[in-house]
Design a protein around this nucleic acid. Structure first.
Lengths: 223, 223
DNA sequence: GGCTTCGTTCCGTCAGACAGAATATCGTTC
DNA sequence: GAACGATATTCTGTCTGACGGAACGAAGCC
């Protein structure tokens, strides 16, 4: 996901440029020359060399030999593992819960976390119905719409139900999952068509299942 | 391995500062506040906020909620995996070779790759002798000393043997491992005490084994 | 209410970073 | 060996991007 060096003025230009070098590398790149990096990033070679010096010192880039060719460095492996450890527990505990919710209700089950002014679909299990929403894990969705958004933005303190808010044909039920000291970790969510979920009698057991499983996760996670 | 923002003038200061933020995170940090990041990096909060804006846009940092608290972001996971893929094949093919070398000769077997003007011990299997050199994987060693260094610096075109060069009591035998188009990928190395390896009759089968296994790796790797 | 700490915004200053020219090196072709 | 094109490296004048740190508001504590 490369950054755009010409993005609106916020942040630091040199940092944006440096990071664009890292994102210039693609899977399978054994090593990129200065000329190739210049082509991929649009940066002058003198600029590249300055920025690369900082990235090399941090071992985010390494120059495997004497020739002018660079690869992504070991520091990124370390940071990547450290970045991942933050959600490792969630990635262990949440999928079984999602599968149980799908087995029990037939609707799609997701887990969302807040990311700035958006929400990220971290984990997902598809429901059994042919008609259902499509949200691949990794998607960023609006924070202020949809049941999970209400939960994550604090607009809803407990269970939230929205019908046709993000899309007129879809509806969702979400409940907060908390960690130690009441920290809001994410939102457990069931989603399906508005046609099905509008029916309060159909919906009642779904609400109860989301509430129960979210409370269970909260208990497991120290909330 | 945090960078030192006050390092000699090479590279770009703002980039060094930004990366120092990423390295400020430790394993187990659920999220760091602005004040805590300021303490750990020594940077002013206004400077931090500017730099963090760039890191957030690149999704190297994420702000999980409305409060001022950041975690390492998903882009680092992606870059970490991409960084790792470059040596994945080596990490699969080389360890069995190292184990065979140890089984056959009893001496310690290592695989080095060049990193700028140094060499990195990527992989290692300890030998059976009580007296042996200590080089944990991940170590950086001098490029211009030692048999593996001669190979990686191009000072030796084929097999290299050095006795007492890096340490008076140690000796090593190394051969190049090449990839497609003759690209030098690394050096396969046996090392032990100078006392043992100084004996040409003792050493001859070791040289043959290193040569043979390096040629085998080269064949596997497209050289 | 006062104090401390934190997070956010603002702005004058200047030195850090850039663009891009110049130079050196390398590889290829004849 | 010379010529050519491409690549890598070095250098420097310019100026604006980034910094430091003050000011301010909010939150928490006593």
């Amino acid at each position: 996901m490369p950054v755009k060096p010409e993005a609106p003025a916020e942040g630091v230009g040199a940092v944006d440029r440096a990071l664009s070098i890292l994102f210039a590398f693609e899977a399978g790149d054994a090593g990129l020359t200065l000329a190739e990096l210049s082509r991929r990033t649009g940066l002058y070679k003198s600029t590249l060399l300055r920025l690369i010096a900082s990235l090399e010192r941090a071992r985010m880039l390494v120059r495997p030999g004497a020739e002018a060719r660079w690869r992504l460095g070991p520091a990124l492996v370390g940071l990547g593992l450290r970045a991942q450890s933050g959600t490792t527990l969630l990635r262990e505990l949440v999928p079984p819960v999602l599968r149980r919710l799908v087995a029990e209700t037939g609707e799609s089950a997701s887990f969302y976390v807040r990311e700035g002014e958006a929400r990220l679909c971290l984990l997902r299990e598809e429901g059994r119905h042919a008609a259902r929403d499509q949200v691949p894990p990794g998607s960023l969705l609006p924070l202020y719409r949809g049941a999970a958004g209400h939960v994550l933005s604090g607009a809803a303190d407990g269970l939230s139900v929205t019908i046709g808010e993000r899309d007129p044909e879809l509806a969702a039920i979400a409940a907060p999952v908390r960690g130690s000291q009441g920290l809001l970790l994410g939102a457990l969510c069931l989603s399906g068509t508005a046609t099905r979920l509008r029916d309060a009698r159909y919906r009642a057991p779904l609400e109860e299942a989301v509430r129960r499983e979210a409370a269970g996760l909260t208990a497991l996670l120290g909330g």
